[in-house]
Simulated assay, not measured.
Amino acid sequence: MTTVGLLYPGHAAEDDFPRIEILLDTDIRLPLFSTDPGEDAYRPDALRERGAAGRIAEGVEELRLAGAEALVWASTGGSFGLGWEGAHEQAAALARTAGLPASSTSVGFVHAVRELGARRVAVAAPYPEDVTGLFAQFLASAGVEVVAAASGGAASSAEAGSWEPERVKRLVLEADDPDAEVVLIPDTSLHTAAYVPELEEALGKPVLTACQVTVWEGLRLADRRMWAPRLGTLFATREPVRGSQEPKGIEVRE
């Protein structure tokens, strides 16, 4: 059995993770602790506060007792809002607190893009434009080029969590660009686990969603590879692209 502990801010789309457990259909377990998100607002200051060390550390002991072998801070904005260096410092602090390998959804997106051997992406985000721009800057700091982006204008996680699949699909189609090798949907507040292959079929290219990437990143840290095409191309790649493998361990900096 492999157990990946998830620290998730508040309540929005956390039910995607039990769904992913079912789709993996194996001995992987994803215990989740809901942290206090603070003010639920898609603003840079609120996102930075959401990712404060004290808030994230709140659930560490519970997840350790649940047998977690690795931890992932399952928030995109709560990590990219700190910038590239800040997100790595956040993950390293979490790892030291837990005594376990740790990462975040935002850092996981970069690793997942590299896993697929891509460099140019499109971003379909429910955020306001300024917050989407922060994610694009985060990716650029990692050498990932954002060639197109679409912002849904949601004001909060609660609002994004209420979106129906058709609204997400419209945003993804709006964001796509012929030059993009992959399309990224960077918000763990969106329900997406049930239809990643459908999105990929519509676009003719890989799609990376926040909840999917969160689980993949945790399994990467636990050194567990999974073949589960019902979760999209990221889980249908049997071997990593040459040179794409990332370091593992307590210190998650690259």
Rank of each mutant, 00 (worst) to 15 (best):
M1D: 12
T2Q: 01
T2L: 04
V4T: 11
G10Y: 10
F17W: 03
R19F: 06
I20C: 05
L23I: 05
L23V: 01
L24K: 02
I28Y: 03
F33V: 14
T35Y: 04
D36W: 11
D36Y: 14
P37T: 01
G38L: 04
E39Q: 08
A41E: 01
Y42V: 08
Y42H: 08
R43D: 03
P44A: 05
P44E: 06
R48Y: 00
G51I: 00
A52E: 12
A53H: 10
A53S: 14
A57I: 07
E58S: 15
E58H: 10
L65K: 12
A66T: 09
A68V: 08
E69G: 02
A70P: 09
L71N: 03
A74M: 02
A74V: 00
S75E: 07
G78C: 00
G78W: 03
S79I: 06
F80I: 00
L82Y: 04
G83N: 03
W84R: 09
Q90K: 06
A91L: 00
A91Y: 02
A92P: 07
A93D: 12
G99Q: 07
L100R: 13
P101F: 11
A102Q: 08
A102Y: 12
S103K: 02
T105C: 14
V107D: 02
V110C: 12
A112P: 10
R114L: 10
R114G: 07
R120Q: 02
A122C: 05
A124V: 04
P126L: 07
Y127M: 07
E129H: 14
V131M: 05
G133H: 04
L134W: 01
L134H: 10
Q137I: 03
F138I: 03
L139S: 15
V144M: 05
V144I: 14
V146Y: 02
V146I: 15
V147W: 04
A148S: 12
A150R: 15
G152M: 14
A155M: 13
S156L: 14
E159P: 02
A160N: 01
G161L: 12
W163R: 09
E166T: 10
E166M: 08
L171Q: 14
V172W: 09
V172S: 09
L173R: 11
D177S: 08
V182A: 04
V183D: 05
I185M: 13
D187Y: 10
S189L: 07
S189D: 14
L190A: 00
T192E: 06
L199W: 12
L203C: 05
K205C: 07
A210S: 06
A210W: 10
V213S: 00
W216E: 15
W216P: 13
R220L: 10
L221Y: 15
R224N: 00
T233I: 07
T233A: 14
L234C: 06
E239H: 13
P240D: 08
P240F: 02
S244I: 04
P247C: 06
E251G: 13
E254N: 11
